[in-house]
Write a protein that binds this DNA or RNA. Structure first.
Length: 203
DNA sequence: AAAACGGGGGC
DNA sequence: GCCCCAGTTTT
């Protein structure tokens, strides 16, 4: 069907999937927070720099805010995020024995962690069947007629009805790659798009 | 529902 | 120089 066709083409286009992310839950949690409203060209080296110095909740919880600010100064909202990394680490140690929880309701209690970040951790680090809806997934799903929604929360609910469950965890990475290169927010490259023949925007 | 946070990269 | 970006929290 239509959804399977879209995902199948995306997998063909991006056979290696979305980068080779470090699947360690703590690394994934922290780097995903850093990635909020920030391009991954900036996020990836910044995360690696941070973890070369502070690679555990214990170290991050006791670090100086100034030291973290210096390490992550390239990402957006870096001052707010620096304090949040400390607060997240402290809460992990205080309430979760230093272990990143694999439950959406617990993850969103962490400061600076919303539904999108939590679902990224669940799908990438814990291999859970969830759909992480960011602006790319939201935009492309609507543009291609998979859903008709106004908010990412709505999109998550509607996509779950339309997409086979075994595809949930892969659509985020695939649509992010697609959204950055082809199906862009403004001036999408429809003339070079592999969805040319099935995209409702062009029919 | 809207504002605020914010440096980096593309054009 | 201007606009946008793997969102979340606060007002």
């Amino acid at each position: 069907m239509y959804v399977e066709q879209i995902i199948s083409r995306l997998k063909e286009l991006y056979p290696e999937g979305y980068l080779q992310v470090n699947r360690d839950p703590f690394y994934l949690l922290i780097s995903t927070v850093l990635s909020q409203r920030t391009r991954d060209e900036v996020t990836i080296p910044t995360s690696q720099r941070l973890f070369s110095v502070l690679d555990t909740p214990e170290k991050m919880a006791t670090a100086d805010v100034d030291e973290i600010q210096e390490l992550i100064r390239d990402v957006g909202f870096y001052k707010v995020k620096s304090q949040r990394l400390i607060d997240i680490s402290r809460m992990l140690l205080d309430e979760y024995e230093g272990i990143v929880p694999d439950d959406i309701n617990e993850l969103v209690k962490l400061p600076g962690v919303g539904r999108k970040t939590a679902n990224c951790v669940l799908s990438y680090a814990f291999d859970k069947d969830v759909i992480a809806v960011d602006t790319h997934v939201h935009r492309i799903s609507n543009r291609m007629g998979l859903v008709e929604t106004d908010t990412p929360e709505e999109t998550e609910i509607e996509l779950e009805k339309v997409v086979p469950k075994d595809m949930w965890k892969e659509i985020n990475g695939l649509m992010v790659l697609f959204g950055k290169s082809i199906c862009k927010p403004v001036s999408p490259k429809c003339d070079k798009c592999i969805m040319n023949d099935i995209c409702p925007k062009l029919i």
